[in-house]
Design a binder for these strands. Structure first.
Lengths: 189, 189
DNA sequence: ATAAGATACGGAGAGAGTCCCCGGTTTGCA
DNA sequence: TGCAAACCGGGGACTCTCTCCGTATCTTAT
């Protein structure tokens, strides 16, 4: 990532075009969008794509890194604006909406919270896990959330809610509704 | 499906071999198992496979039809043995376990409860929807389940629980745990 | 301004798969 | 025994991935 020399100008141009096109393609066709097609749409050869991003995962992660980081920032904003329990609920809502609006992100966030796949996704995984940990701990300290759930479990359940809403047609009202039911199950008892 | 003539003996033999091999292959490799490979493992030509099952969905559904029907029967068994609320919980547990143990079934059950994909999955969809409807209505009548959830929503949420447990490594304890949390959110209040 | 050297590009092509059709051959039933 | 039904498996038309190396482009030192 950190180059000893700065990137050549044309290399940087291509890198950024690829990122932009990839984000669109993954959003439209899901995680299995054709990589050759992404290269073509970006106006570069496929060799160039594979040089910059050796694996599909690398491209997927790079394409949505900014969005993921925005979620991290958003967690702290919400923590400042709302009571802890509501901040958590709202953040999970925004997470789930992102997951569904942008189809590639579902796979990305999914593999970020598996047991096994941790290796591949250091950056995105860390950001999201850090954000949810802060929100969960604050909510638990206030008694707005049962104490026996781990932050990562909350993430997995939110992913599950997104899956459920997806089956329902992925409307945002469904996300709110299902998340509300989950939230009910997670109250301190 | 209902032939005017009964199937020729060798045709029936091949049909059943294909079903058996397909169930194994989908369980092992997921919904995208290679169809050519299934044909090869069953010892038939690929043409034979495509004659019996014109689409991947058709094969998937046929391969798991018996399992799905067993779930339908199991719903009534449980309804006779346990109080309505517990019967529902236990049935959802068994559904989720099946969903995860047999990878192909996740896709099958998933598409059975979407808004759009109803057309392709008449039989499996009907069985599962019927079973859950009976259990949900019984539980609601007893006050063991909130009245404002539809049976199909319960199915979707159970699918979400299975997705969440899958991220955790698909252990059965996780399924129980996450289902317990969902159940908490669904109590009558 | 320019030339030399480092760097990155492009896109053909091999390899792996999938889906499906076809025409000669075999099999089973009456 | 005859013929309709079903089989087999090669092969075509696709799609996708990923590598290789001759060529084009940029950078830097002069």
């Amino acid at each position: 990532m950190t180059q000893s020399r700065p990137m050549r100008a044309d290399a940087r141009r291509n890198y950024e075009r690829l990122l932009k096109v990839a984000a669109e393609a993954f959003a439209e066709h899901g995680e299995n969008a054709s990589l050759d097609d992404i290269a073509k749409r970006a106006g570069v050869g496929s060799g160039t794509l594979y040089r910059h991003f050796p694996t599909r995962q690398a491209l997927l992660e790079a394409a949505y890194l900014d969005r993921i980081e925005a979620l991290g920032v958003r967690a702290d904003e919400l923590a400042g604006e709302l009571p802890p329990g509501e901040a958590l609920t709202e953040w999970l809502y925004e997470l789930a909406v992102g997951t569904l609006q942008v189809r590639g992100m579902k796979a990305l966030l999914g593999s970020a919270v598996t047991q096994s796949g941790a290796a591949a996704l250091t950056v995105c995984g860390d950001v999201v896990k850090g954000a949810v940990a802060r929100l969960v701990e604050a909510a638990q300290a206030e008694g707005a959330l049962r104490g026996d759930v781990a932050p990562i479990e909350v993430l997995r359940l939110a992913h599950g809610v997104a899956s459920a809403a997806e089956l329902a047609g992925a409307g945002e009202p469904e996300i709110r509704r299902y998340l509300g039911l989950l939230r009910e199950g997670l109250r301190a008892g």
